[in-house]
Design a protein around this nucleic acid. Structure first.
Lengths: 344, 344
DNA sequence: CTGAAAGCGCTTACAG
DNA sequence: CTGAAAGCGCTTACAG
């Protein structure tokens, strides 16, 4: 493997100049730079990252702790994030080092990864409300970026969508179509996103003076969407609209609607939040699913770049992004049956 | 962060001696060693891996390319391997660097990872027959270990079970119970393991002079197990026994048997290969499932250690392991109905 | 615009 | 048993 020394020997230059030429320092003569680049190419020079890292004090590695859930419900989202983050970090010569969390203590894997190795910072995903990992890393001054929001007033870099607004937008949209009995089939409350969705839902419903009896918080399985919807639709005053945590949940809900002999959207409307995962796509529903949409993949580049910016000194308060999901109205939502009757 | 220099300054020793003391060199005086260790502990010394790696020429990173399948069928096994490998490598101060393969060209991610960084070697999982990655890495002299067998006569480190024997054992066992019409619900043939299972099945059946009409090679979904078994059981001469690629397939097959009104094992026997994944456990079947068993997790420590041994100079021909899966007979297999009739 | 020098934190022959 | 020295391959003040 060619080194800077090889190039400098070949050209009769110092390694310092070769280094500067290759790293785009403005002061080097353009002819020198070209000669250097050419021989570097010819010799197949690749900078030794390890040496660079020793001198810069950076390891070029950021950590992520993977939580293996026995129910595997997080797989799809995890793969999506893994793909996007790996690619985004590779752009910046940074590797993603994984540690797998099999422990009860949520911060233990962080301890281990920090003890054992040189990690520049962490990407925290799938936060729980008031995530304990945040406190742990903050106390130690270890840089990180959080995907999502685990508290109302974050003081650290974080990027995510406004999950309160996701629910509120859905409720308001259904309300405007005439719906009054609106159900929420939510994710599990130990996830921060689901807790926010619940809060947003309750707030919006209460503001509109609607009852919030039809709420379920449960693991994101199609079968759960199915059984919860089936239950609710059997009640005397069944919901006329469902707000679903994900398109996977929606798939179960839609099946329940069919199995109860109802039509969508004539009898029952369905809206879901759409992470734009490759499976269970909203447009493949029949009719296509109305959604609030925020592709999970879109978070990866910002997350990577925010962490690296933070490592380079950008203060945390400049690195806080809360986005609004986009509302896409398709065929699965429509006016309530009551309203249609009233209207004609 | 404390360095060797800090310790040496504190103790009036040279960094060389401190280094040797900490690294367990036999020549250091026991009292010196103890003093060094004590101050190292007190100062919270952690060796700088980057510096170690620069001088040893090792990066302490091994690569694995993750293939994201749209059907997500490999998730469970991937997580299992990820967990085990991460833990096994951590024992040896080695990190697992992931690259995600989203490309058509199966070697492209290897090129990228090698170009971009300093990777000591690779772990290749989920091989296809005559895996092209093998040739690529061998040509370039890059160390790797393969999980499984992608060809009959490997010339590189590899670890896996004998998948031909898995099928052959299952067939022979069913034959001895009197079964003659034996079906195989296999994985997809682009996987090396499935290709071997098919070969083993065909060979064993042919040797026993049995017909091999009932074979399906398909993605490992419970629904596929269900539909294939349902089809086969509707035929005039339906199989009396099923050999299943995995317990997930078996779950579908068992459901089909029930739905056709048959009893297991009185009417139909089922045997599966069991990777011992946390979901779909063989003992949770009713009756419990007869399996050939080889926990995927068990491969992780050997794989990690074989790769590291290879990096340290152990020749490839000493690093080739082919294990036999264990046969565990439970309630899902029994004598054929014909035989019982004949016998009484 | 270029070079000589110091240094990042280790390891390991070579002396003694 | 311990130390002084060289070196891994870079980067970056400091001179000129």
């Amino acid at each position: 493997m060619a080194t800077l020394k090889d190039i400098s020997a070949e050209l009769g230059l110092s390694v310092a100049t070769v280094s500067r030429a290759l790293n785009g320092f403005p002061e080097v003569n353009i002819k020198t730079r070209n000669k250097v680049k050419e021989t570097a190419d010819r010799l197949g020079y690749r900078p030794n990252r390890i040496a660079q890292r020793l001198v810069t004090g950076r390891s070029g590695m950021v950590g992520m702790i993977v939580k293996i859930k026995p129910d595997m419900s997080a797989d799809q989202t995890f793969f999506e994030m893994l793909t996007g983050l790996t690619a985004a970090l590779a752009t910046h010569e940074t590797d993603l080092v994984l540690a797998v969390d099999q422990e009860a203590d949520p911060v233990l894997p962080y301890t281990k990864l920090l003890e054992r190795d040189v990690i520049d910072g962490f990407i925290l995903n799938a936060p729980v409300p008031n995530d304990p990992r945040v406190n742990y890393l903050q106390e130690r001054g270890i840089p990180f970026v959080l995907h999502g929001q685990d508290r109302r007033e974050p003081t650290y870099p974080n990027y995510g969508i406004d999950n309160l607004a996701v629910s509120a937008d859905a409720v308001r949209m259904l309300f405007n179509l005439g719906h009054r009995r609106i159900a929420l089939i939510n994710g599990e409350l130990h996830s921060a996103y689901a807790a926010d969705r619940l809060d947003g839902f309750r707030d919006a419903m209460t503001t509109l003076d609607l009852s919030t009896v039809n709420i379920r918080n449960d693991a994101v399985f199609e079968s759960h969407g199915y059984t919860h919807a089936l239950d609710m639709l059997a009640q005397p005053s069944a919901p006329t609209a469902f707000v679903c945590a994900t398109t996977v949940i929606a798939a179960g809900v839609v099946q329940a609607i069919k199995d109860r002999g109802f039509c969508m959207p004539q009898d029952v409307s369905v809206i879901a939040h759409d992470d734009a995962l490759p499976l269970t796509r909203a447009i493949n529903f029949d009719p296509a699913l109305t959604v609030t949409r925020a592709p999970l993949r879109d978070a990866c580049v910002p997350l990577a770049e925010m962490l690296l910016a933070h490592l380079n000194g950008t203060p945390a308060d400049k690195l806080q992004v809360k986005l609004n999901a986009e509302m896409i109205v398709r065929g699965s939502t429509g006016p309530t049956p009551e309203r249609k009757v009233d209207g004609t």
